[in-house]
């Protein structure tokens, strides 16, 4: 019965019906969110909500009345009975859809307390640095997953905070100076050492760790990375040689340091 009604209403109701179905439905009752396994929510049917005639069920008679009223309204009839007035109101829904909100005193106070509140960073900066250097083609969530899994493996093996292990490793591995070629304009160019700041040092350390990780056995990036970080933490990594050679060049060229 109800399905027949819906069919009739949709064809006869025409544009009026279809345009305001969504908005008036939302205004009429809060959207019943049905979770996956919750029993069926007992809300009245959509049509009953739009057409609130204080009735539990809608009969054929009501449908006929609705259709008749619609037809009469189309022919320029001034609304006089309840159904017609209701349909007429439906064509001017702006007044009902107006959202009026005024914050209460308490809400304003609450807002003020949060105005000065500081929001902590969503992630740890060191970890973020590693993530961003691993990331390819902007796939950040994939990179985060790799790093999170690697740190999880480090925790499982060492049973200490993996972030501290990572920090210590990067501090140990990071070079202090690098050299750059300065053009003098004469025949000979100068190789000048310069100090690296913390961020630069960390960057070199991370890149060397990633290089070392590529040589590990596992086909899983996270496992390779975890193994390389742990071996670098224990002092065994090809990165230390790279760091030493960098320092060696800097020491050899120490005469050119510009102070």
């Amino acid at each position: 019965m109800s399905s027949i009604f819906r069919l009739g209403a949709r064809t006869v109701g025409g544009s009026v019906f279809r345009t305001f179905t969504q908005s008036s439905y939302r205004a009429a009752a809060p959207l019943a969110v049905r979770f996956k396994s919750s029993p069926a929510a007992t809300t009245p049917s959509l049509t009953a909500q739009i057409f609130p005639m204080d009735k539990d069920t809608i009969t054929e008679k009501d449908v006929d009345e609705w259709i008749q009223s619609l037809q009469r309204l189309k022919n320029g009839h001034t609304p006089d009975n309840a159904t017609e007035i209701y349909i007429d109101e439906l064509t001017r829904p702006e007044e009902y859809l107006k959202q009026q909100f005024e914050a209460s005193e308490q809400q304003l106070q609450e807002q003020q307390t949060f105005e000065t509140a500081r929001i902590p960073l969503a992630s740890i900066p060191v970890v973020d640095n590693v993530v961003n250097l691993i990331m390819r083609n902007g796939k950040k969530s994939q990179a985060r997953k790799i790093v999170a899994r690697a740190l999880y493996l480090i925790y499982l093996k060492m049973r200490v905070d993996p972030v501290i292990v990572l920090e210590e490793t990067l501090e140990k591995l990071g070079p202090l100076t690098n050299t750059k070629v300065v053009k003098t304009g004469h025949a000979k160019n100068i190789i000048r050492p310069y100090p690296l700041n913390e961020r630069q040092r960390r960057r070199y350390a991370i890149l060397w760790i990633l290089d070392g990780a590529a040589k590990k056995k596992s086909s899983d990036y996270s496992v390779r990375l975890a193994e390389e970080i742990m071996s670098a933490h224990a002092g065994k990594s090809s990165g230390y040689e790279k760091k030493a050679s960098m320092h060696k060049v800097s020491i050899a060229q120490r005469a050119y340091i510009n102070i």
Partner: peptide, 16 residues
Amino acid sequence: KVKKSGTTHLVFKDAV
């Protein structure tokens, strides 16, 4: 024949 080091060849979910 690239020399590979490391203790495990497993992927993460199996390694764990």
